[in-house]
Amino acid sequence: MSEFATIFWVLAGLTLMGMASAWTGLLLSLKGDVLSGDVIAHGVLPGIALSFIGFESKEIYYLMPGALLSGWLTLEARDWLVRQAGIRSDTASAMALSVSYGLGIVGMSYIRYGGKGSQSGLDRFLFGSAATILPEEILFSSLLMVLILGIILFKWKEIFLIYFDKDWARAVGFNPNRADRLLTLMTLICVVTGIQMAGVVLMSSFLIAPAVVASIFVRHFYQRVFFVALVSAVAVFAGSWTSAFFSNMPTGPWVVVYLSLMAFGGMVWRRIFRHSV
């Protein structure tokens, strides 16, 4: 594949992943549970390791079911800790994600030293490697992203209502639990498709950072829907350009750097102009 074609595919895949993650993160921020993105991102690692041990393949199609299951179980464990043990949500999130990440690292070590073949290639799930992604994997990710965009398009009003006032929503017949499940599914899909580009550690930035930047610059949810997509696309473009221009520069981390710069710039701008959003 030519260098231009590689850049095009990386850019297309990252843009789609970035925008869908940004929208999902925006909905998570409405729910007041952005940490669940981080929990799921770290929670998929044991599933990836176990799937690799089972199938001995690094292709996303083989790793995805295990990653989805493991990410979901980690989030369930977090919610169980909150419900049954009465632990605060942020503490439970920290516990669940660190335990799951630890298990994932144990699995990766077993693969590396336990004679299960080369771990090379699995590292991209830890740190992300947008350049190694294949066009068919981007196509697969794109279809999942279209699914997420469809959910947002048709269900955002219901989600908007439910996360403003869950008791009221229940009182008039809506089902907040169903909205929670839908949002969990969207987060899982975003994380699992995005993790090979961004890595478990940085994936939560793709979810959270655009919503943070948007909350600094614009106030209304409708404006934020457009703004997070714009922020995400600009960061992806800038990150990809930096990665292509300077050799040995990773794309995902640069995208996160640009997202952080935008958030920091926004905060300075708000401070200077005393503009409260």
């Binding site: 908007f160 008791d167 009182a171």
Partner: peptide, 14 residues
């Protein structure tokens, strides 16, 4: 139903 005002987050972007 009109719930208590304190039951929601009034910083909601609406």
């Amino acid at each position: 139903y009109v719930p208590q005002r304190a039951a929601v987050d009034w910083k909601y972007p609406a």
